[in-house]
Structures are given as C-alpha cells and as structure tokens.
Design a protein around this nucleic acid. Sequence first.
DNA 1: CCGGTAGCTGTAAACGTTTCCGGGAGTCTG
DNA 2: CAGACTCCCGGAAACGTTTACAGCTACCGG
Lengths: 353, 353
Amino acid sequence: MGRKRLQEPDGRPTVHTVAARAGVSIASASRVLNGVGGSPETVRKVRAAAAEVGYVPNAIARSLQSQRTELVALAVEDIGNPVYVAMMRAIEAVVAESGRQLLVHATGGRIDNETALLRRLAHRYVDGMIISPIRVTAEHLTALADSPVPVVVIGQLAEDAPMDNVRTDSRLGIALAVDHLVATGRRRIGFVNGPLDTVPGAARDAGFRAALARHGIPLDENLVEVGDFQYAAGREATERLLARAEPDALVCANDLIAVGALHTLLALGRRVPTDVALVGMDDTELARMMFPQLSSVSLGSAERGRKAAELLLQRIDDPALPPRRAQVAPSLVVRASSGTPVPAQPIREEVTS
Amino acid sequence: MGRKRLQEPDGRPTVHTVAARAGVSIASASRVLNGVGGSPETVRKVRAAAAEVGYVPNAIARSLQSQRTELVALAVEDIGNPVYVAMMRAIEAVVAESGRQLLVHATGGRIDNETALLRRLAHRYVDGMIISPIRVTAEHLTALADSPVPVVVIGQLAEDAPMDNVRTDSRLGIALAVDHLVATGRRRIGFVNGPLDTVPGAARDAGFRAALARHGIPLDENLVEVGDFQYAAGREATERLLARAEPDALVCANDLIAVGALHTLLALGRRVPTDVALVGMDDTELARMMFPQLSSVSLGSAERGRKAAELLLQRIDDPALPPRRAQVAPSLVVRASSGTPVPAQPIREEVTS
DNA sequence: CCGGTAGCTGTAAACGTTTCCGGGAGTCTG
DNA sequence: CAGACTCCCGGAAACGTTTACAGCTACCGG
C-alpha cells in the first residue's frame, strides 16, 4: 500500500511545487536545494516544504541543464566471461566512487554492434565510454574519432591513434607461460587459441611462436588449435588436438578455454599436471575454482579496468587533456595445474651462453 | 526574423540548426525527423540539412519531453554469479528488443544499497527496475511501494504484496534433488546452504528438512552446514562438514557452493559420484564446466529474467495494469556428479497412493 | 547623510526536444 | 460556388532544472 502523496494529484512535486509551498521563487528554491546561498529563513522554509512534499530533483531535467548524465558506459564482448566481470567490478568501483553509474553493454564481439554503440554516443545519453573490442577495424577508428564524448579503449590500438588507451602485453604473457613450462621440463607444448583475426588471438599466436623459437623448440602445427574464446570451443579444440597429438603441456588463450581443455583432458583420462600441464590466461576466479586449480597468466584485468575508469573520468573533467596511455604488465600465477611435479628430465636452460 | 545561431562553432547541431539550414520551423524539422508528417519538399530539405550537419537528436532533451528514459535497471546481488549472468542475458535480450538499454547494479546483497537504489528511482533516471533481493525487509516494501516507476521483483514476496512478481519454488527444487538422491540409493544426504536469514536460504533449508522427513530419513544436523552463497564459502563449509560426518551425497544451495564442495571433495580424495553424489542448484553454465559435470536443480533463471522483463515492459506501457505474478517451476537436471551408478538398495517410491 | 557594497531575491532565459493550436492553402462535396 | 475537410506549416508552450542578471534591502564607512 503506497502512502498517499501530499501534493500534486497527477504528477510528482517539482521545484515549482516546493517554491510555491515555501512562498519563494523557484530560483531561491533551487539555490537552497543545491546548498548555495539563501537566507536562514528561506533555507528553513524551502527545506521544510521540500521535506513535506517529498521532493526529489528530476535527474533528466538536471542533465539537460548541466549537459551531464552522470552515466558511464562499458562495452565488452561477453558479460559471462569472468575476466570481464573482474574488469567490470573494478570499473564500477571507481565510477561509483565519483557518484556516477555504470551502463553495461554486451557486444557479442560483433563489429556492427560495437560501431552502432559508438555511433549512439552521439545521442549523449552517457558522459563517456570504456570499450574493449577484440577486433579493431577502420570503422571502429572513425567511429571513435567522431565520438562527441570521451572513449577509453582497453586493448591494442594502432601506435599513433591519438586516444586514451589501456593495454597489456599478452604476447609477453604467453611467453611467461611457455617459459614456465619449458623450465619445468615440458617440450611438447600445445596451444589452444581464439580466432586469429582478433587482436588478442593474433598477439597470442605470435607470442607462442616466438617463445617456442626462443627456446629452440620446433613448432609442431599439430599441437596448435583454434576455436573462439568460449568454454565449449576450448573443449572441442582440445579434443581435436588430442586426437592427433600427445602434448605434455597446453597453453590456453584464456581461462574459459583452459577450463574446457581441462574438462577434455580429464574426460580422456589424462592426469593434470602429471601427464599434461595446463596454463590458462586472465587469471580469473574460474582458475581457482577448478580442481586442480589452474595456473594462469594474469593480464591485470582489474587493474586495467581501474586505470581505464580513471583515465575516462579525468578526461570527462578535462577534455583538453592530451591522449594518454596506461600499460599493465602480465604476470604468471602458478597453481596446481602446472605445478613442478614433473621434471622428467633434469631441468636445463636451453640457451645459457 | 533574427536567426539566432545558424552555425554552431562550439556545440553540436540541434534541431534549430537543421531547421534554419532547411529554411523551415523547428516544428516542421522535428516532425520530419520523427517521420510524422511533412510535405515531400519539406522532407527532402530537412533530411538533406540534417545529413549535411550530421544531426543526431539529443537523448536527454527527448527524455525530458517524453518523460521516458528508455533505460531499465537491473539490481542483483553479485554480477559474478553465473545465475545472474544468465538472468541478465535474458533480460537484456527482451529489453534490447524493445529498443531500451539495461543499467546493471551490483548490490552485494546489502540492504542499505538496495533501498538506496530503490529510493534513487525517484530521480527517474530510469523507466523501471528489476530487482532480485535475497533479503526482503520492511524497508524494501515501503521503498517499493513509494517508487514512482514500476519495479518487478524476482523472488519470494509476501503473498498479498500488490506488485509484479516473478518467483520459483526453491523449496520444491530442493525436494527434487533429495528425491533423486534417495531414489539412487543415498541415505546420508548432506546439505550446504547459504545464510538462513535470506529468503532463498530459509526456503531451501525448509525444503531440505521437509523432503528428508517425507522420505522418513532422520535429519543428522552434522550433515548440514551454512556459509554464504559464494564459492569460497562452499569450499570451507564442505571442509567443516566432512570433518565431522561422512555423507554419501551433498545437496548445495547453489552452483557456486556446489563447485566449492566439489573442490573440497576431490581435494580430500572422495570420488564423485561414487563416494559422494553432488547436486547443485541454479543449473548455471558453471555446472556443465566442471568435471564431473554437476547435476543441478534448474530454477529457470533465464526464464524468470525473461518474464520479469516482459512484465516490466508491459507495466511501463500501461501502469494501470493490475499487479501480476509469474511462476517458473523448478526441474532437476541430472549429470555425472549424481549419476545413477549407486542404487545400493532397490529404488522404491515412498508414497504411491 | 549619502554612496558603496554585500547579500538575497525574483524574473527570465537558457538546455533541446516534442506537441498543441491556430491559420492558410488546397481539394472535395453537395 | 460555398462550405467542409484535409494537409501542412510556424509560433509558442510545454518538460524541470540551473543560473545570469538586475533590483532590492540593510548596513557600513566616510
């Protein structure tokens, strides 16, 4: 049962209602309600009137006047991927702390969705956006350049793109994983990647090949599989890979893939890490949930989210700022899935000279 | 006729810009841009002018006039819980299909957060809200009743609460799990629950006790543990439980808890389902990711989200609608973690009359 | 005693849309 | 051919704020 409204049989109270009830002008009412100016007597009357009618300022009208929405958008591929959950949490913390709210879009990685979203920014329903595209096309770049509100991109961008950008080095991240596996005696190292036409997919592929080469390990293409960045794809890709090769370690391009790989490995009777060591990427909470717990390369998703949010808020406050870039270094978190139990041969550094 | 601002040196083009450029009034320009009315000639001129200056209508001004935001909010406890991800995806689909966007809030299950959120609705920054509180207090109810915009609640509410409501029967859901375990020969059935002062926690507790009683199985309190609804709590609660009892099956109040329980079981050398059968709840994608895959009681999270979104959109369109309620029936999804390998005794139906 | 100043106040003009309303022109009907 | 009817158009009024500006009072110093 709603308690009855004291005023305004049809609509909700506005500043006019309050002003009339307090016997002052709307200007005075507005000033008092915003805490700027007003004589003690006016303040008292307006406050009382506002409380009596239960006045709450209308956010839209305020936005129209202030040209600010106090909303910030985040566009990611897949809100089900825990890496984006971590990012989202970090961003939300920063954004909320500034009194704003976060609007989340799931793009499904579809380019048309992403560019449509960027174009919609022209409607100015939001003060800024953080976007983490897995593919970057020319359309993206023009849409980004045309945007009337600030946009921060999480992910690799052309070197000279004059926009705020937060990045990591997933190529180096893959190298960390490979180095670790080599150091623990693995030599037949497989790789389950996401699509090669995505920015992270391409970077991780390059990183894998470079790392193997650096260790002088010839690449066996049978040990490389590609799916998308989802769990099911990881599972199936690993099935295909195991059908034609027998790796002693698997590097996966993200944790969802790694979880799928783990499932296939266990289902096919491989022991992890005894038979096959497993390393994922993104270091999501999922990695800690598995049994055995998954080693994973952290790309600092929370940190990247936090930095992106800070860059965005600063730019909103001062659009004249020069474009800035933040970088987060990858790091390897070793857990049971690639633990050190299997130095089948004495560990030796391949290249020591 | 003093044309005020034909050019826009600093700002973006408005309908005034377009109207001036096309040589018509802003009324005509607006009509053409909205596709209502206008002579062919006017339409041509306005369209051309709009294209030339790259006009995009301002969402805020439009909202002020229309009293609509085209935004819908969703408030859930934890965006990391895959059950809410599923719900969110379903809601997002319905909401997007109606041309609106979804604003997601994470409440952390904190009552003050939730009521603050509900009160903020008075600012009307959003056309409506879907909220899924795990506790329901008197504050919630007054805040809900006072809300100037429609709110749909997912979860149990007082029977006579006159508001749109989508619910399931998790009590019955637990019963399905227990029935299944009993039917496959388990008798020492443990239960890892969430907090008893939450609505789902209380319902699931009651359901568990009632189901055991119905089967004539005396309840051993050593087989019941409580944590919160998170993974870590499930892991720890299961450790405590196994330290003092030896169940042959575990029912968990949600999938996160079940995943934690699985981790502990495997870490302590129990075979699943041979030694201990495991059933989770919510049937999230997490359940399928585990090895062995988890049986889980589906509470139709996607379905509930979809229905809630539909109820909300309908109410936004017609606020005079009577309060409605939708119910989604639970169902058990049996997978490997509670497979049928152990009918120690012949299966029998307890009550057949 | 008077001019200046500080502090309040109200009027009105923004912000950018949509829409009501009245008027004008053209077309159809009786 | 007059009246009615249909379109189309532009002016102006909303929607609910904030704020620039000017006027008013009261007080102070000279």
